[in-house]
């Protein structure tokens, strides 16, 4: 045998950033990581490329809602494409998160990975941590790029609506937190289901549920401002950049009635007098509330993500050694 003459060192270790568990996790999820990187590069490039044109438009016409029709004509297609970014967190949950642990369990390789010389805790930390880190970095870059595209024209894009549609979910910290949360959900679901395809389907259900909850949650992330005016006039005006959340009719003793209470009445003034209505009230979110709402929502999602990760680590550690 050649062993006696073989003088090569027994531990020819590779250096560089990719070694140990990092290399294993990278290699296992190479396709997903490369795809994510490609999506990040393309999205950032796309946003920054069109930002120049958007800045030109704003320099020429100004960032006011008056020109949003014109802006829509020129840039609707550009922005419609970026709205697809709102699917990214769900896709990450389904295609990166769900198979991550379930795949190892389904093919038995979890027994291979955890009987090498690294402890189970380190293994699960790397398996969960590195993909989450990749998600954090990529979604942060994408969010920064899109936010940079949107901010100069925030009165123009989508007629200035930053709350109801996609804008709220793909700017600032929200897409990052949502992507981390859904990826974490996918991992946890996969770990419990132990089969890749059912885990992906179940994660799809979770992401759908999450989007419904978020729709409900968004306007509850801050207390709306109120503008009050006399019942005789129109509803009071709110700033162009604000989002009209709700409208009420107020009585002298402080009751609020639906804004349509007297719409069908023949004589509106008489109807209002009859009901004791003295105020017209508008509840609205001003643009300066947006950041606070986004951070509050993101913080909530990040706390949930931390809980999910802690659960995954505890579960993996607790069961076998």
């Amino acid at each position: 045998m050649s062993t006696l003459t073989d003088t090569r060192p027994a531990t020819a270790r590779s250096r560089g950033p990719l070694h140990g568990l990092t290399w294993l996790v990278w290699r296992r999820n190479r396709t997903a990581f490369l795809l994510l990187a490609a999506v990040t590069v393309v999205s950032c490039g796309y946003c920054l490329y069109h930002r120049a044109g958007v800045l030109d438009f704003v320099a020429q016409y100004g960032n006011t809602i008056r020109y949003s029709e014109k802006f829509e004509k020129a840039y609707k297609e550009v922005f419609d494409r970026t709205y697809d970014l709102s699917y990214l967190p769900a896709l990450l949950g389904i295609f990166l998160g769900a198979p991550l642990i379930a795949g190892e369990q389904e093919h038995g390789t979890v027994r291979l990975a955890t009987t090498q010389s690294v402890s189970r805790t380190r293994w699960i930390a790397a398996t969960v941590g590195l993909p989450l880190l990749a998600v954090l970095v990529c979604t942060t870059l994408i969010s920064l790029a899109f936010t940079a595209l949107w901010t100069p024209a925030n009165q123009l894009v989508n007629y200035g609506d930053w709350l109801g549609g996609t804008i709220f979910d793909i700017t600032g910290p929200v897409p990052v937190a949502l992507a981390l949360f859904l990826t974490g959900c996918g991992m946890a679901v996969g770990m419990l289901v132990r089969r890749v395809v059912p885990a992906m389907l179940l994660t799809l259900v979770v992401t759908t549920g999450t989007s419904f909850v978020l729709d409900w949650l968004r306007p509850r992330l801050a207390t709306p401002h109120t503008a009050t005016g006399p019942a005789s006039g129109d509803f009071p005006a709110i700033p162009d950049s604000a989002i009209n959340f709700d409208q009420w009719l107020g009585t002298a003793d402080g009751r609020l009635l639906g804004w349509g209470t007297c719409v069908d009445a023949k004589n509106e003034a008489a109807c209002q007098a009859d009901q004791g209505i003295v105020h017209k009230i508008v509840e609205y979110f001003s643009l300066d509330q947006m950041a606070g709402m986004q951070w509050r929502g993101a913080a909530l999602l990040l706390v949930l993500t931390a809980l999910i990760v802690a659960f995954i680590v505890q579960w993996t550690r607790r069961r076998p050694l």
């Binding site: 531990t11 070694h19 990975a113």
Partner: peptide, 25 residues
């Protein structure tokens, strides 16, 4: 159990990366 999409060399590298006393030869 082995990672099916890994090459044989990558499978051995898994052993090398995860074990301090690995004997590649």
């Amino acid at each position: 159990p082995l990672y099916k999409r890994f090459t044989v060399a990558e499978t051995l590298r898994t052993g090398r990366e995860l074990n301090p006393g690995w004997d590649q030869a």
